[in-house]
Simulated assay, not measured.
Amino acid sequence: MGEGNKTLASNRKARHNYFIEEVYEAGIELKGTEVKSIRAGKLNLAEGYASIDNTEVFLKQVHISPYEQGNIFNVDPLRPRKLLLHKQEIRKLIGLINQQGYSLVPLSVYLKRGKVKVSIGLAKGKKLYDKRHDLAKKDAQRRIQREMSGKY
């Protein structure tokens, strides 16, 4: 994400649970009052994932709360939403997803020049010992920073 982007939601657990190999920026097809709801920050990426069905990429299990002033124009909060990617990117992702252990995980949702964009990562699941190793490394870095700041 470059300058001028406003992050609306991020999936903080994604980098803890997965090794992120590549990151893609995708547009998202929204209906009715979903944009207003997203701008208000009423979405949850925690359980979300992306899947490829018939050369189209869909974002699933992402909860966008219904807009409070929306009445009849509100849609199902958990409906699958189409992601807008270039055809060559989708072909590349199909090839990589067919390999063992890869999946597509939403990392963040942000505004770019007034449009809602989704950052999705090509991810490989971490084992429990990998997670423990990352936590130990982060803890050691924190301890080093604390010691260094104490000297000055």
Score class of each variant (00 low, 15 high):
residue 38 I to W: 03
residue 97 I to A: 05
residue 78 L to T: 13
residue 8 L to H: 04
residue 25 E to G: 10
residue 148 M to A: 15
residue 93 L to M: 03
residue 73 F to L: 11
residue 131 K to V: 15
residue 118 V to E: 06
residue 114 G to W: 00
residue 99 Q to R: 08
residue 38 I to E: 00
residue 56 E to S: 14
residue 123 A to P: 00
residue 70 G to D: 07
residue 127 K to T: 08
residue 49 Y to L: 13
residue 121 G to H: 02
residue 97 I to D: 05
residue 25 E to C: 14
residue 10 S to D: 13
residue 3 E to N: 12
residue 109 V to Y: 08
residue 32 G to D: 01
residue 133 H to G: 14
residue 66 P to R: 04
residue 149 S to Q: 13
residue 74 N to K: 05
residue 123 A to R: 07
residue 106 P to W: 09
residue 115 K to D: 11
residue 133 H to T: 15
residue 147 E to C: 02
residue 79 R to H: 05
residue 114 G to P: 01
residue 57 V to Q: 01
residue 148 M to N: 14
residue 58 F to T: 02
residue 69 Q to P: 03
residue 130 D to S: 12
residue 83 L to V: 15
residue 142 R to Q: 12
residue 143 R to T: 13
residue 137 K to F: 09
residue 6 K to H: 11
residue 128 L to Q: 11
residue 48 G to Q: 09
residue 67 Y to G: 06
residue 95 G to T: 05
residue 51 S to H: 09
residue 115 K to C: 10
residue 145 Q to T: 12
residue 139 D to H: 07
residue 23 V to C: 10
residue 148 M to Q: 12
residue 139 D to E: 10
residue 4 G to V: 09
residue 120 I to C: 07
residue 135 L to E: 09
residue 34 E to K: 03
residue 104 L to W: 04
residue 22 E to P: 02
residue 100 Q to P: 01
residue 90 I to G: 04
residue 147 E to Q: 01
residue 68 E to V: 15
residue 64 I to E: 00
residue 42 K to W: 11
residue 79 R to D: 02
residue 145 Q to E: 07
residue 62 V to H: 01
residue 48 G to T: 07
residue 60 K to C: 09
residue 51 S to M: 12
residue 58 F to Q: 07
residue 127 K to Y: 07
residue 31 K to R: 11
residue 44 N to I: 10
residue 125 G to E: 05
residue 47 E to V: 14
residue 26 A to V: 10
residue 124 K to R: 13
residue 102 Y to F: 15
residue 74 N to V: 04
residue 48 G to D: 02
residue 122 L to Y: 00
residue 117 K to V: 15
residue 84 L to F: 11
residue 123 A to G: 03
residue 139 D to W: 01
residue 92 K to P: 05
residue 4 G to H: 06
residue 6 K to P: 03
residue 15 R to V: 11
residue 67 Y to Q: 12
residue 54 N to Q: 12
residue 23 V to L: 07
residue 86 H to V: 03
residue 18 Y to V: 04
residue 5 N to M: 13
residue 76 D to T: 10
residue 81 R to F: 07
residue 35 V to L: 08
residue 116 V to A: 11
residue 140 A to W: 00
residue 90 I to T: 14
residue 41 G to W: 06
residue 45 L to Q: 02
residue 50 A to P: 05
residue 137 K to E: 15
residue 51 S to Y: 02
residue 19 F to Y: 06
residue 76 D to A: 13
residue 71 N to P: 04
residue 30 L to K: 04
residue 63 H to D: 01
residue 61 Q to I: 06
